[in-house]
Amino acid sequence: MSTVFDFDFFIECLKSGAARIPVNLYVAAASVFFGMIFGLIIALIRVFRVPVLSPIFRWLVTILKGVPVILMLLVFYVLAADYFNLIMEYFGIDYTFRQLNKAIIAIIALSVLSSIGLSESFRGALASVKKGQYDAAYSVWLTKRQALVYVIIPQAFPIAVPTLCNYIIGMIKAGALAAMISVVDIMNGALIPANANYRYLEGYTAAALIYWVVCATLEKVLNIAEKRFASKVREVA
């Protein structure tokens, strides 16, 4: 440990971390994707006050909204560690927890959180569509499903886009927490070389730089999408 900051070693960490960018991207993409689907379903159930389900989700959302990401990840990890092997054995599948890609656990845990969060955002967006739009849709013989698909959701979606973009960024960052459940993401990737010789400063700095570049790039791309949808929002405002 001659120098305070070993630049060559830093580059090594950078390479090792950057190789894991796809892991963060697919964990984030999958979590937001499932979050959008289930978030929309939950939002529709609550907006239309579906009996039984609506109050159940109201409670679930209230409870889960307050759960920190790291806790959610750990809970799912511990659950999987305890029960995965039992379930696989039950179905006679030769596949153990050790072999399980831990990124799947991260995706499940983060999907639950993004479903909850996005359901709140979608609910607000759906509620902002005026009642007259439903009336008009029904008056030209659309069914409820058709009204939602062709009139209501296309008007509500642009309103939810900014939150959605924030969620994508948030999920990339949450990927760093997935490192806690031994997902080899940008963070753990950058630390692999450091683990060998305890030069953690280079490892963490490399991870930070990669995160910064990924998020900044993504933010640029998402800004373009947001702009595009902002003009749609003006149409329906």
């Binding site: 007259g132 009336d135 008056s139 009139v151 008007q155």
Partner: peptide, 16 residues
């Protein structure tokens, strides 16, 4: 409904 159509006071055109 398929026997009817409606014109609204606030027009209620599909905004999208």
């Amino acid at each position: 409904r398929k026997k009817t159509a409606m014109v609204f006071q606030t027009y209620d055109l599909f905004l999208n």
